[in-house]
């Protein structure tokens, strides 16, 4: 690699060199600095919406989102300054004050770490309250848990599936992920690839299998084994991660870093495994 294609930045006083075009998040990772992210995923274009990954860059009036800001030579970055800690604390607190983060496993530690107190906005504060949408036997949508990270929209749209069945509708705190006119998912452009579910960080989108097991109190992630294999349908060779609990497949994902899928599957790969265990699927019919 030529010298120009390398930039060196200081992360909390530690010098790290990254390829030109790399983000500050990449640099943080290289520096071994753990950074909370929510709307960022390695297999999607950075949405730059949640702002939980902000860092302080010397000379910048505001904090900058590490996920989508390119590292520039000689940048001096603080990831744990009082300003950064305050903003991260408040972002998590704001999120927790409006939606149910109880299944956002990746965030729980950070909420603790930064000392966010979502309840200090009082019991009368506006929160998102919607019925769980169960409209088919493959997924459920529980928008009380939605943090509007745009990941599902990107996965459904131009980052992967190009179906564009869902989009952000409305504005401000009333913005929601919606089909057109909120039509039922089976009546929309959805082709049930499940890529939206796979990228959801808060379990607002869930596979019906998981939802049903949770309802029965039978969802046991710690007892699940994940085995990597190859889809049994067409000849593209998508890698699958088969999640197995009690010798039963409970869900299927794909590794984000796989060259073929980048973590994205089609309906057959995602759901076409039921024949392996006829009669064992926990899924109940939707409304």
């Amino acid at each position: 690699m030529s010298k120009e294609s390398i930039v060196t930045v200081s992360i909390d006083g530690k010098m790290v060199s990254v390829a030109a075009g790399a983000t500050l998040l990449d640099a943080c990772r290289q520096a071994g600095v753990d950074t909370p992210t929510l709307c960022y995923a390695d297999n999607l274009t950075a949405a730059n919406a949640c702002r939980v990954c902000v860092v302080e860059v010397e000379g910048s009036r505001t904090l900058v989102p590490s996920c989508s800001r390119s590292a520039e030579d000689a940048m001096v970055v603080q990831t744990d300054s009082e300003r950064v800690r305050h903003s991260r604390k408040m972002v998590l607190e704001f999120l927790g004050s409006g939606v149910d983060l109880s299944q956002a496993d990746d965030l729980a530690g950070w909420i603790d770490y930064y000392g966010s107190e979502p309840d200090r906005y009082g019991p009368d504060r506006a929160m998102i309250k919607e019925e769980v949408r169960i409209q088919d036997s493959l997924y459920i949508r529980d928008y009380d848990k939605c943090v509007l990270c745009y990941k599902c929209v990107s996965a459904c749209g131009e980052d992967a599936q190009h179906s564009f069945a869902i989009a952000v509708a409305g504005r401000g705190f009333d913005a929601r992920i919606r089909t057109e006119f909120d039509v039922r998912l089976p009546d929309s452009a959805c082709v049930y690839c499940g890529n939206c579910v796979a990228v959801c960080p808060t379990n607002a989108l869930q596979f019906k299998t998981e939802f049903d097991l949770r309802k029965m109190g039978e969802w046991k992630p710690t007892e699940q084994a994940v085995t990597r294999t190859v889809c049994s349908y067409c000849g593209v060779g998508c890698n699958l991660e088969v999640h197995v609990q009690d010798d039963t497949i409970v869900k299927v994902t794909s590794p984000d870093d796989h060259d073929v899928t980048s973590g994205h599957l089609c309906i057959k790969g995602r759901f076409g495994w039921s024949y392996v265990q006829p009669g064992q699927s926990a899924a109940e019919e939707g409304d």
Binding site: S87, M90, V91, F94, G122, V147, G172
Partner: peptide
Amino acid sequence: FRNESCGQCVPCRVGSLRQHELLES
């Protein structure tokens, strides 16, 4: 500001809401 926030980023989407709620109450 609560009404005009586009809703994209969390600080503004929720912050403008909580600010208005707090003033109102």
